[in-house]
Simulated assay, not measured.
Amino acid sequence: MTGKASDTDDERGFAHLEHRYPQAVQAGWVDNQPGPVTRRTVVHLIRGQRRLPVVTEFHYDSADPYSVCVIFNAHTDMTVEWTFGRELLLSGQRQLSGAGDVQIWPSEIHGSGVVFISLRSGAEMDVVAAPAKVIDIFLERTLEVVPLGEEERHSGIDSPVSQLLDEI
């Protein structure tokens, strides 16, 4: 793993899609600098028995250190963005996690690890399957930028206790 834009999904799952998408759509690092972390990949939107491939970006910015953003249909006119906790995504790699609008859990399809993400808005619900290795590597990069437990230092928002202590 080099972390360069040339890295593709072929070593992380969904390799069978390689012939369907140009190189620019396959998984690769969009950033090469510390700070924001963006990982482009193809996930599958599960609709009954059908799996629809969707170009997706996972994004993390140390300015909002507790959250990750997932952008579906990346670089099109019809994008959909979901933001949820980074710790939820971390936990969902190992076990069913989340309650309410976002639930995440690990599984396996045809011998390859996947992470399912269920997104609910009102009465509508969608489930996507992302390659587990892509999620793992994305989260590793976010933890390099902001380790767990150090989010408050990066949030730019002083805690109420810190503010009170500064006033004394």
Rank of each mutant, 00 (worst) to 15 (best):
T56V: 04
L45G: 04
D61G: 12
T41H: 01
W29Y: 14
R40Q: 14
M78T: 15
Q49R: 13
I46D: 00
T79V: 12
R39N: 07
R47S: 14
Q26W: 09
A74D: 13
T79A: 04
Q26H: 15
E18G: 10
M78Q: 14
T76R: 08
D31V: 12
F72T: 00
H59R: 10
A74Q: 14
V68Y: 02
H75S: 13
H75V: 10
R47A: 13
E81L: 06
T79L: 04
L52D: 08
G35P: 04
R50V: 06
A27V: 04
T41V: 05
V30T: 08
F72E: 03
D64F: 02
R39F: 06
I46E: 06
T41A: 05
L52F: 07
H59G: 00
M78R: 14
P22N: 12
R40N: 03
Q33S: 14
R51T: 05
G28W: 05
A27I: 01
F58R: 02
Q26E: 07
P34W: 05
R20G: 02
T38A: 14
V42E: 02
I71C: 10
H59E: 10
V30Y: 03
R50M: 11
F58P: 06
D61L: 05
H19N: 13
V25N: 11
S62D: 15
P65G: 05
F58Y: 12
V37C: 03
P65V: 03
V55Y: 03
E18Q: 13
Q49D: 14
V37F: 05
P22M: 02
A74T: 13
G35E: 03
V42R: 00
S67T: 10
H19I: 06
E57V: 02
Y66N: 06
P65I: 05
N73F: 07
M78Y: 12
Y66F: 15
S62I: 07
